[in-house]
Design a protein around this nucleic acid. Structure first.
Lengths: 348, 348
DNA sequence: CCGGGTGTTTGACACGTTTCAAGGGACCTG
DNA sequence: CAGGTCCCTTGAAACGTGTCAAACACCCGG
C-alpha cells in the first residue's frame, strides 16, 4: 500500500504551493477560482484525506470530547451519550465514548487516553467522585463536567438529577400504597447515585414518622440485571411473613433482574412484592410487569453537559462553573400498583 | 492556563536531551537507572502528558479502530461493540464507537472522521453494503471488516451470523405450531440483515409445501420499538379473522413494540398472536411476555471482527480475507408457545 | 513611467514526537 | 599507550498541517 497522499503531493500535482492547498481547504474564499479547481481536481485524483493528527498537533487541541460512563450496556447511559453526541456534533466535535465498567482502573486508563488525545473536555460519571485523579486532570487544563452526579464543590460544573428527591418520590409512593416492609436494592454504595437514592428513600420513611433504619438494604456488586437476579434470590429466599412487600431498586436493570427472579419463583408482582425501578429506560414499560420507575431527562442530561463542557473549553476567561440539577419524575405502572393491575385485567 | 508541558520541557528540567526522555518513555531498559529516575521526577513535577497527536503523526498511524453501528441504543450493538472493545484493548488499541443511525449521511461523515484519524481499521454494519464509499476507503488502505453482514465478494473480511438460517428457524417453529397466517415485520428492506431474515422465513414456508408469498410483509422505517408499535397498530387494526396469528420480527426491539401494542389493545400473546423476535437481547427474556428469539453470539461477533481487522492491519502481505459465519440458535419462550404459557400458569 | 492599491500565492517555520547515526566515556586487552 | 568494546546519550531530521509575513502580479490614476 502506498503511503497516504499528503498536502505536499496535492500541491505537486496541482502545481501550486502547500500553503495554497491549505488555503483551499480552510479558507477557500481567498484563493482564485481557477487555482481552487486545479487543487480540488488534484485532491480528487490522489484520494487525499486530511491527517487529523497533524492538524491537531498544529492546532494544539483536538476536536473531540470524551464521555466516560459506568456501563454502555445500560440504555440509560446510551441515551445520555446520544444527547451529548447531538450537541457535540452540532458544534463540529466528535465524541469518544468510553466505558469504565465501574472499575477505577479502566476509568483511569481511559482518562489517560483522553488526556493524551488532548480532548477539549470530558463528561464523566465517575466511579469515585472524590478521586484525586480527576482533580489532577482538571488541574492540567482539561475541563471536566460531572455527569449524573452533583458536584460537591462549586469549583466545577456538574449536571445531575436530584437523586435524593427521586429516592424520596419512590419510597413515598410505596408507603402510600401501605407497604411497611420495604427493601432497597442497589450498589456499590460508593456510587453517589446509589447512596443518594437510598438516603432519599430513608428521608421519605423518616418523614412519614417511621424508623428509617427499618429499610432493609441489599447492596449489590453492580447495577445490572445479573446483580438484580441475585438480589431477587435473597428476597425470595426469605419466609413470606418476613419478606419485604416492596422493593425499590437503584436502577431499572436491577429491577428487571429482581422481577425476573420473582416471576421464576412464582412470587407475584405487585401482589406479593411491589417493585419500583429508576431511570425509566425504554424497556421498563415493556417488562413482564410494566415497571414503575423514576424518570430522568436522559437526553437532556447529555445535551446540557456537553453544552457546558464546550462552553468551558472555549473559555475567554469568564467561565462560571454551574451545577445544574434536574427534577426526576415518578412514573407509576403495574409493578407497584395493584389497583392498576385489576383495572387492566378487567379490560382484557 | 499554561500550555501543556512537552517532552522538551521535561528534558530541560531533567537536564538531558529530548531523545533521552523519549527513550525513558519507550525503551526504559536502554537508559541508566540514574538518568531514568531524574527524568521520571521531571515528568512528575511538570505533570507531563504525552501528546498522542504527535506520536501518531510521527508513527503514521493511530492506535485506534473504528466501530460503526446502526443504532447504539440497540443492546445488540452495544454487546457487539463491547466484544470488539475487549479484543482491541487487549491489543493496546482504543475503540471509537460511531452511530450511523441508519443514515447514509451520518455513516459517511463518520467514515470521513475515522479515515482522517488514520484508524487502523474499521468494523462496520453498513447502511448500504454495496456503497462505493466503503470501497474507496478500503482502496486507500484502511482495512474494513463487515460486521453482522456476509460479504458478497471474497475480497474482504466479514463476520456474520447466518440470517437466512435464522429466519428459517423462526418461521419453521411458527409453522410447526400450526400458524397458517403469518406476518413479517422489519425494515428498511434495504438492510441486508432484514431481507435475509425475510428470505429465510419464505424459504421455510416454501419448504413446508406452502405458498411463500402468503407471508404478509410489513416494512418498517426503522428497527426500533416505536416502529414496532406502529406495525403492531396495523396488525391489531385488522379484523380478527384476517389478522395474522403469528408475527416474526426482524429484531427484538420491533418485537417488543409489537408486543406492547398487542397488550395495549387486549390482544393476547401468544394465544391470539404469537411473536418471535431476533437477537435475543437481554431484555427479551424480561419482556411482558418473555420473547422467543433467534440468538446470535453477539459478544463473539465483535471479538472476532476485531481480531480480523487487527490481523489485516498488521498485515505482512500474507493476509487472506475470510468470511466467518456463525450459526444462530432459536430460543423458545412464552411469546410463541401456548403450551409453555399453560405450564407456567399452572405452576403459579 | 511611477506610486500605491488590491488580490493572490509563496515559502519557511512551528507544533511534539520518535528514530537513528554518530558521539563520548569508561573500561578492558594486548 | 593504542585500539577495541560496551553502554549510554546526543542532536538532527522527519512526520503533515496551519499560519503569516513577504513577495508577486496586476491595474488604476496621475
Amino acid at each position: 500500500m502506498t503511503p497516504a497522499a499528503s498536502i505536499r503531493d496535492v500541491a505537486a500535482v496541482a502545481g501550486v504551493s502547500v500553503g495554497t492547498v491549505s488555503n483551499v481547504l480552510n479558507r477557500p474564499e481567498v484563493v482564485s477560482a481557477g487555482t481552487r479547481s486545479k487543487v480540488l481536481a488534484a485532491i480528487e485524483e490522489l484520494g487525499f484525506v486530511r491527517n487529523e493528527s497533524a492538524r491537531q498537533l498544529r492546532a494544539g487541541a483536538s476536536r473531540t470530547i470524551g464521555v466516560v460512563v459506568l456501563d454502555v450496556a445500560n440504555p440509560f447511559f446510551t441515551d445520555v451519550a446520544r444527547g451529548a453526541e447531538d450537541t457535540a456534533n452540532a458544534a463540529g466535535l466528535a465524541v469518544i465514548l468510553c466505558n469504565s465498567d465501574d472499575q477505577a482502573a479502566k476509568e483511569d486508563s481511559y482518562l489517560d487516553l483522553l488526556e493524551q488525545q488532548r480532548v477539549q473536555g470530558i463528561l464523566i460519571t465517575p466511579v469515585d467522585a472524590g478521586s484525586a485523579r480527576l482533580e489532577s486532570v482538571r488541574g492540567r487544563g482539561t475541563p471536566i463536567v460531572l455527569l449524573d452526579q452533583h458536584a460537591r464543590s462549586t469549583a466545577q460544573c456538574s449536571v445531575a438529577v436530584d437523586d435524593l428527591l427521586g429516592g424520596e418520590l419512590a419510597m413515598q409512593h410505596l408507603l402510600e400504597r401501605g407497604h411497611e416492609r420495604a427493601a432497597f436494592v442497589g450498589g456499590p454504595l460508593s456510587l453517589r447515585q446509589v447512596s443518594d437514592r437510598l438516603d432519599g428513600a430513608r428521608a421519605a420513611i423518616a418523614a412519614s414518622g417511621r424508623q428509617a433504619d427499618r429499610l432493609h438494604v441489599i447492596e449489590t456488586a453492580a447495577l445490572n440485571v445479573a446483580s438484580g437476579r441475585q438480589a431477587g434470590e435473597q428476597i425470595a429466599g426469605r419466609a413470606p411473613r418476613s419478606r419485604p412487600t416492596a422493593v425499590f431498586c437503584a436502577n431499572d436493570l436491577l429491577a428487571l433482574g429482581v422481577l425476573q427472579e420473582m416471576t421464576r419463583r412464582g412470587i407475584r408482582v405487585p401482589r406479593d412484592v411491589a417493585i419500583v425501578g429508576y431511570d425509566d429506560i425504554e424497556f421498563a414499560a415493556a417488562a413482564a410487569v410494566p415497571l414503575s420507575s423514576v424518570r430522568q431527562p436522559r437526553h437532556q442530561l447529555g445535551r446540557t453537559a456537553a453544552e457546558m463542557v464546550i462552553e468551558e473549553a472555549s473559555d475567554n476567561g469568564t467561565h462560571e462553573h454551574r451545577q445544574v440539577v434536574f427534577e426526576p419524575e415518578l412514573v407509576i405502572r403495574e409493578s407497584s400498583d395493584a389497583a392498576r393491575v385489576r383495572r387492566t385485567a378487567r379490560k382484557a
